[in-house]
Design a protein around this nucleic acid. Structure first.
Lengths: 222, 222, 222, 222
DNA sequence: CATGAATGAGTCTTCATTCAT
DNA sequence: CATGAATGAAGACTCATTCAT
């Protein structure tokens, strides 16, 4: 409580406000389509203040990335470590991703549409983070192969890429409005993505005889 | 070397040269990261000539889109119609996509990185084309459900999205250099994507007893 | 006279127009005080055209420098080589400098006020050109020492610096309006600068007895 | 370490610290090339504190000017008044200028590079002070003419300008690194500037017969 | 006094698009 | 058709100055 103390949250607040505004605007107009002025207006701060906290537009996107991606990856890694079997780990990953979308669809949209996709000008971080995460996830499948859960002929990296792609495009279907954003629909999609990835689109035919295909499959494998 | 005479194909050539240059440059720097001047230089033509053939930058991207996407979709649709079972159709789609990548990785890169991803404000065509294609592919699964090949509880749109996502991210793994671009590797990846999508990552366990898991599965399902 | 021929002078004209406009504006407001818009307006061209010919503001100043300085140095060198004695060479240099001022006072003003003076941001060229010229001129004095025209104890570099300083500040007196810009006054100043530099402010006392001090001194030394 | 208590000299200290920092930074980057933030950082004080003591950037430069120039002019005037003959006065002026450089090269650099050079639009003080000083010095020569020490045909203003120019460019040679900053070299340069200005570059030939040309000349004139 | 967060006008620079030749 | 000079609107970024604490 000294004389010079600023409320310690004040700075974090402003910076956070600007970050959230950036996510908002990026998700609406995209990185290239938005002006710093838009972010400032959205955040309700003066133009120059954006530059007080972020040295340039790219660093702002960088921060959005870190805010979104780092958090996501952390949670992914946690879940991946929690599960024992490949089945559990994959289901964990899928649910983390879809939960993130339910929690903050805007942030997920920016991650999917802007980050790790724009070929030019992106700092190394983004690209490598993306690839790095795929490689991290691929260890799940490599381990699974060692433990005999998975066909050793499968390329783990492709497995990981497929899982990511399936999740991402599943979310994209929501982002693009092909599917309703209702929580139940999202949950159902999540379940389907995990089931199909693990058991295949054609499944094992058990759904022909039982009520809950999902359960039956889960049981069969457990 | 007369200044005014051009062979009748000259125009098509010029236009095509510019289009190919655009693909090249877009794939390297992205749509926003490149200037019309870059395209002109790459094509080896004068600055203003680009505007003779394309009324503006966006139309150029539009044309790249049509060149790449329309052709791809045509081939996808053909293959999808050729196959009888869901299995055949899916394998057809996957092979079309991976063949396109083997034939012209640059064009595929542009399609993946630039088109159908850019947020609102872009011409409707692209976005809807992307969604439209997903919807088209989803009919494969809807039909499969009608014919009893697929669990009716699955949402066909999610199936289609997953298939697309798996293919796209599989290709992305190559584009990002996570995997070698050797033809065999690409072919193997294509096979794995189709197998896993159809039969699931965990498979049916047949690989534990047989030499060629891939073959065995294919047989089992055929 | 082909169809695509632009009058060859057209480009040079525009570029020259912009360059002259830059000299004009720099001389009025200084480098920092002027905006590219000012230069464009002064030249009567569109804003962007300045950037068609000069890649940025600094390069524009650079060109002004080359236009003015290089020409000046060339003429200085020529004159310095023409003269036999130190006396002749020095008088040559002084007359070149003052002639330049009579011909294009604005350009000289920019050279004096802007170039080789701003400590920061200046490309190496300017600084070294300035110093380089002083060094070039100092050889005149070094040679003079070898031929016994000059006291060998004098540091030639200081001689050159003094000569430059005397000329420059003499011109500055005009630029700052301390003296009228009438041609006669300028000529008289030039003569005085040369005389005083060579013979000293105190002179040899000959002026006490003769009509034309200048002549008498010149004779005495010849 | 109390927050509110400052020793009575604290204010003067702070202000002086900022002033010295400004000299430091101006001399390194120039007036336009530095930001208030740079000055504050150099002084080790907070950003806004600069505005407590100086109402704006220009006033800060103004103060630097006064600090350096006023002092210099005072000393110049004193010395100019002390001497009897033109010879003595000129030697006095030169030694004051070179001493100032030995004492505080940074301040001299700022004076030379920034003050009295910036084109129109700057506060009148600086420009007029520069011109005013030249005019003051010119009275030395005018008086000299009245007393028969100098050729009445010489324009006193040009004499003063030349003297200033010779001194300034002589110092510039040091500032630009053309000559070593060793005290002896500086002293020698000062002597040479005075000798040459008074007696001319060509001298009177006495150096041909005597050991110490400098002394001989000084004797001859004394 | 001291701090440094906040403000926003001012400029440079880029680049899609037009147009005279 | 072909060229590339010319245009000017748009937007990133800087930094002097103010102000709440």
């Amino acid at each position: 409580m000294t004389a010079t103390t600023k409320s310690p949250t004040a700075e974090a607040d402003r910076k956070g406000t600007i970050l959230r505004a950036a996510i908002e605007v990026f998700s609406k107009k995209g990185y290239h389509g938005c002006r710093i002025a838009d972010v400032a207006k959205e955040a309700g701060v003066a133009y120059g203040l954006v530059y007080h906290y972020y040295s340039n537009k790219d660093e702002l996107l960088q921060s959005v990335f870190e805010y979104g991606w780092t958090g996501l990856v952390t949670r992914l890694t946690e879940r991946a470590l929690q599960g024992k079997t490949v089945d559990e780990k994959v289901r964990g990953i899928v649910s983390v991703a879809f939960d993130a979308y339910k929690t903050d669809p805007r942030a997920v949209k920016v991650l999917i549409l802007e980050i790790g996709r724009s070929p030019a000008g992106q700092s190394v971080n983004r690209g490598s983070a993306f690839g790095g995460t795929i490689e991290m996830v691929s260890t799940i499948f490599r381990d699974g192969q060692k433990r005999g859960e998975l066909d050793p002929k499968l390329e783990p990296l492709i497995c990981a890429a497929m899982l990511f792609g399936a999740i991402e495009m599943g979310l994209t279907a929501f982002i693009m409005g092909l599917l309703d954003r209702k929580p139940e629909t999202v949950d159902q999609a999540a379940r389907q993505v995990a089931d199909t990835f693990l058991g295949g689109a054609l499944g094992d035919g058990t759904w022909k005889n039982e009520k809950s295909a999902t359960k039956s499959r889960a049981l069969k494998r457990a």
